[in-house]
């Protein structure tokens, strides 16, 4: 406590009105700290983004270019899109992309609709067995998906959906976790709002559409983003369900491609970029909603 005297500068800083602004007063950064922070940020950036750039660069390097050189060159000296063309000519990559997109759209739609309906009912409507239903959803969280993947396959096979894209999408179309996230989001609404709406004669459906949904848009977007990414990136499940190479999703197709072209890293690189770039664009466009949703507390468990 005796050290207080050592910090007059800090205290003076603090007395400026800026302090009241909360996030900037105390957080104001000294120039030296700023430099250190940016250096660290750039360092981490190299680690996280570097490998992607390296792959992008490999995919653009000309066939005559030595990609194995000891002194790595990030910029291709004979840049070309040739490998992208070659990959798409040899392997139906666009079909794979379309398959992935179809699965992802089904999964996003199913989760947004199914999870918000159920989440709304469990958190805002009174009914017998409500607690049991909630408990059931909670209980399944302990179970890693891989544990039931074999019997899930048996179920899908019995529904006649083995080796179909619908079979790939179906089990993930309403995730228990998403139901719980929606339940949490709806619960944050004050009960009085519902009561006022009831006095005004709004039925459950109207309360869902006009009061519930507009106030949980953050969580809905987080669920949609995660569902899309999850479906687009999933590998194990489509690998088990799909046997026909024409029906492959991008991830399974990529693995197939890497086996076929194992002697030409440029082609594999082009293939990975075709799978990677769309998802990055989707995420970069929607990251605003994602980080907002995170701040609202949608991703706490």
């Amino acid at each position: 406590m005796t050290t207080v005297t050592e910090r007059p500068a800090q205290v003076q800083d603090g007395t400026t009105p800026a302090r009241r602004k909360g996030s900037f007063g105390f957080n104001s950064v000294s120039p030296r700290e700023k430099v250190v922070r940016y250096l660290l940020l750039v360092f981490v950036l190299l680690i996280t983004i570097g490998p992607f750039l390296w792959q992008l660069s490999t995919s653009l390097k000309g066939s005559g270019e030595d990609i194995y050189t000891r002194i790595p060159q990030l910029l291709p000296s004979q840049p070309t899109f040739h490998h992208y063309k070659e990959v798409t000519d040899t392997i139906p990559v666009w079909d794979y992309a379309r398959n992935s997109l179809l699965v992802a759209v089904l999964v996003v739609g199913g989760n947004v609709i199914g999870a918000s309906l159920a989440g709304f009912a469990i958190s805002r409507l009174q009914f017998r067995g409500r607690r049991i239903v909630l408990g059931l959803f909670l209980a399944t969280l302990v179970l890693p998906g891989e544990v039931t993947i074999i019997s899930q396959y048996v179920t899908v096979r019995e529904l006649g959906l083995a080796n179909t894209l619908f079979g790939v999408a179906l089990p993930g179309m309403i995730g228990a976790l998403n139901v719980l996230l929606m339940y949490n989001a709806f619960r944050a609404l004050p009960l009085e709002v519902d009561q006022a709406a009831i006095v005004d004669g709004a039925n459950a459906w109207q309360r869902f559409v006009y009061i519930g949904l507009p106030s949980v848009r953050g969580t809905v977007s987080v669920i949609a983003i995660f569902a899309f990414i999850g479906a687009w990136d999933d590998f194990l499940w489509p690998l088990i369900v799909l046997t026909d190479p024409n029906k492959y999703t991008l991830t399974v197709g990529l693995q197939y491609l890497s086996g076929t072209f194992s002697n030409n890293p440029r082609l594999i690189a082009a293939g990975t970029m075709i799978a990677f770039i769309p998802i990055v664009i989707v995420f970069a466009t929607l990251q605003r909603f994602f980080f907002k949703g995170v701040e609202e507390g949608a991703v706490k468990g």
Binding site: G114, A118, L125, T148, S151, I174
Partner: peptide
């Protein structure tokens, strides 16, 4: 403030998925 079946109509899709793709597979495993 709702008829008894309204909540169930909303819950049933999610519940069906839970039973068919989570609970039943656990038992079936």
């Amino acid at each position: 403030y709702n008829r008894w079946f309204t909540p169930w109509v909303l819950v049933i899709p999610a519940l069906t998925w839970l039973l068919v793709f989570n609970l039943w597979p656990s038992i079936n495993t």
